[in-house]
Design a protein around this nucleic acid. Structure first.
Lengths: 210, 210
DNA sequence: GCTAGCTTGTGAATTAAATCACAAGTTAGA
DNA sequence: TCTAACTTGTGATTTAATTCACAAGCTAGC
């Protein structure tokens, strides 16, 4: 398979979310044009994105909503359960641990880790806070697929290195810092400061460039 | 000015964060190569990114850390204070309202809004929860620059439309849905589900494409 | 003042992503 | 069965982003 651009994968997520939405409302078929309008792109882009994975529509008719949903879920790897651990039980970790959206989408949060003895052992949204010292052991023993990192910038890289060494292959980081991982590990970073700076840049330079 | 790519702006944020880091550790000069290594890119990319805004280095010597920091802060619009409101006082809104990182970076959270009468009036990390019915009035009266949206998917677009009508020009959305705004409004979206799906896609298709 | 060693800034070349545009299917209706 | 109206899938084209590669500028040491 050809390398798929991250932007394409992001759009697949958007398409799926719409398909599920209109599917729940009873729609049986849809078109690349519908998906484009709702997803803020063009119909050619939609068809090109899908074409990387196969041919899911019927010319003249469009796409079957349940079928395309199902294919996209397959492509995105959502037809199975994924074990997730949350590393860091601060404000963000806490909010994430209590976030119901995880379970709904097949992500099982099966461990929250922190180093604060005052937190270890506490129950948090159905999950017990565990000792971060056991992180490597648990990555192996519990076979976590995804680690969600919610720790201060200073601790982030060290923890990532530990997790990578223990075999984790996918990390979602909320730490406000740049992290590096080996090529066989996938890292996505959500950095509030960076997003806000994108906005202030636009507010500051608006008009100058468009 | 030529239109600047979002990817460039993101990298500027990264460069700035490193400059502040090494500046605090006493470094006086740095090079495009240093910035590239730390930011996971190439030195040519760093120089090209900066070249859109001017010429900040000295050939043979590199960049002055304090000077480049300052110029980047200027470019990103960080040399001033920005008034931020948080819309939605649920789990995420709560975590954001209490997040200290805002103030540190010049973002003043001066209002949190919700429709739940049980929450309105409560004090939250130094900010009172206000009635979301007053949102439009306050966008005008308090001159919010940025709205951070942390509400369920169903309410997101309606609230955005209301805010846009009232004159808001920058929105950071944490709502798990696609939102559309007019061209003169800047929107950044952080969508947990999409990030996780990016990871599961990689986990599922790993090896096939690299 | 001259040379050697660096590092920037930037056109040119390359690579990647998005858009265009149209042949090829599909359906419905006469 | 034939035609009109659609909509997909995909090469070809265009646009955007990244990388290359090197002249030009700066510093330190002699």
């Amino acid at each position: 398979m050809k390398r798929i651009a991250e932007s394409t994968v992001r759009r697949l997520s958007i398409y799926l979310s719409f398909l599920e939405d209109i599917g729940a409302r009873g729609a049986l078929t849809t078109s690349s044009d519908d998906l484009a309008r709702l997803g803020g792109t063009t119909s050619a882009q939609v068809r090109k994105d899908l074409s990387f994975f196969g041919s899911f529509g019927k010319r003249g008719l469009g796409y079957s909503v349940p079928e395309l949903s199902s294919r996209l879920r397959e492509i995105l790897g959502l037809e199975r359960q994924w074990r997730v651990c949350i590393v860091g039980a601060g404000k963000i970790g806490s909010a994430l641990a209590r976030y119901a959206g995880f379970a709904e989408r097949g992500f099982m949060v099966s461990g929250v880790y922190d180093s604060d003895p005052g937190k270890i052992g506490k129950q948090w949204g159905g999950v017990t806070v565990l000792d971060i010292a056991d992180l490597e052991r648990d990555i192996v023993a519990r076979q976590y697929h995804i680690a969600v990192l919610a720790v201060p910038a200073e601790e982030a890289q060290v923890l990532v290195d530990r997790m990578v060494k223990a075999g984790i292959k996918a990390i979602l980081s909320f730490a406000p810092t740049q992290i590096t991982v080996p090529a066989d590990v996938t890292l996505r970073t959500v950095n509030m400061a960076m997003e806000l700076e994108g906005l202030t840049f636009a507010l500051t330079n608006r008009g100058a460039d468009r």
